[in-house]
Design a protein around this nucleic acid. Structure first.
Lengths: 222, 222
DNA sequence: GTCTATAGATGGATAGAC
DNA sequence: GTCTATCCATCTATAGAC
């Protein structure tokens, strides 16, 4: 049923989840099968029989592990948001106090999670709408926190005179969009390594904010 | 059935199509109803009965105007791609020969179509995978042409020394991502006008390519 | 062109044996 | 936990009257 043409939702083929996430046993198989199908055809396009077949079990077996199809999606989307927020925070903590270093670290983490887990990122970024408010709330909360983290970096850099940003929110949205989009086109056939992409998009982000990275000898005119 | 919470696929509520596109009669009503539903819940999440109810007709009536649900989506996606390509070309023709002017015009056109038709843009950008290769081919072809148009502007600017770009393809992808994302968050409640967004993202694009817009008195060092 | 009615297939989810 | 079998709702699409 998989279509092999050039307008797919993603290019990546590896079904991969962050470490420590339900990797063993039937639960893990179901989770990975759901990941593959939700990424390929979305929540409504994936049937529980599809997912069960890929997981190698009967469709009824799914309900011994998850109470509904929606709960499989909710688990995936929560994992995706947790991993993103964890990486962003870790990057920020390690970056020190220089605004340009902070932005570089956060953008690198953001881009890297989309090259490390493109399939999970597609599901996380595009299928949240299919969850009920109750099941989606934890992810929505984490998403907002991640957004605030980037906004804080930009606002701090602007206040300290390290960045010259026309508008903080629009700038954060733009930088975020660049990273998110990576998940849809990154894959094994792409002629760029994950590091090359991260390096390039860190550079573009620094340009976007007008960071004065190469002129430490020229102090800001206040 | 519409969920009223903050994780929707788009914020825009106005059901709008470009001028001259099947606006009158039952065909137009069906097309607009499909647009609304496909944008909200995607192709697989939208049922024929949903669409028919919104269009104000019986579900069987749809088949007097379109041979299948997929053909409704194909019509929408083609309209979206045609309008984008038309605007990009018009912008480029009017922009003259200066690379920075060309990029500004193309980015403005790209962002503007996403603020003018956010609902159509969401469908156009995210539902192409649901079409069979035959029905999707015209849109795929137009998408590639639009992509080449932006790449040409970037390559020309780089060759003439007006831009300093780390990588043309990655840069085009980034600029494109910023504009595409606008369709998901732009709406009546957003505290920015369409012009403000276009102005800001033109500025960010010029920064991304390192355009020397403010220093005409300082010729490039070759 | 639009309707009522329905065919035929598939959907999510459950019952109950093992 | 996993299976077979099945319920029942919903799906796309069609038949045929008007």
């Amino acid at each position: 049923m998989t279509m092999n043409w050039s307008a797919r939702r993603l290019i990546a083929t590896e079904v991969r989840l962050p470490e420590g996430v339900a990797s063993s046993g039937t639960s893990g198989q179901i989770l990975r099968a759901g990941l593959a199908r939700f990424a390929e055809v979305g929540f409504y396009g994936a049937s529980i029989r599809d997912i069960a077949a890929i997981a190698g079990v009967n469709s009824a077996t799914l309900y011994a592990h998850y109470p509904s199809k929606e709960h499989i999606l909710a688990a995936l989307i929560l994992h995706g948001h947790v991993e993103l927020h964890r990486r962003l925070q870790e990057a920020l903590v390690r970056a020190g106090v220089e605004p340009a270093d902070q932005l570089a670290a956060v953008v690198r983490a953001h881009v890297s999670i989309h090259t490390d887990f493109p399939m999970l990122a597609v599901v996380t970024n595009t299928e949240l709408h299919a969850l009920s408010p109750e099941l989606g709330l934890p992810a929505v909360t984490l998403r907002e926190q991640s957004r605030q983290l980037l906004l804080q970096v930009l606002m701090n850099g602007a206040e300290r005179g390290a960045f010259a940003i026309p508008d903080t929110v629009l700038t954060a949205t733009a930088i975020s969009a660049i990273g998110m989009r990576v998940a849809t086109w990154f894959g094994p056939e792409v002629p760029y390594t994950a590091d090359e992409i991260a390096d390039t998009y860190v550079e573009l982000a620094l340009r976007i904010v007008g960071a004065r990275v190469e002129t430490p000898s020229t102090p800001a005119t206040e």
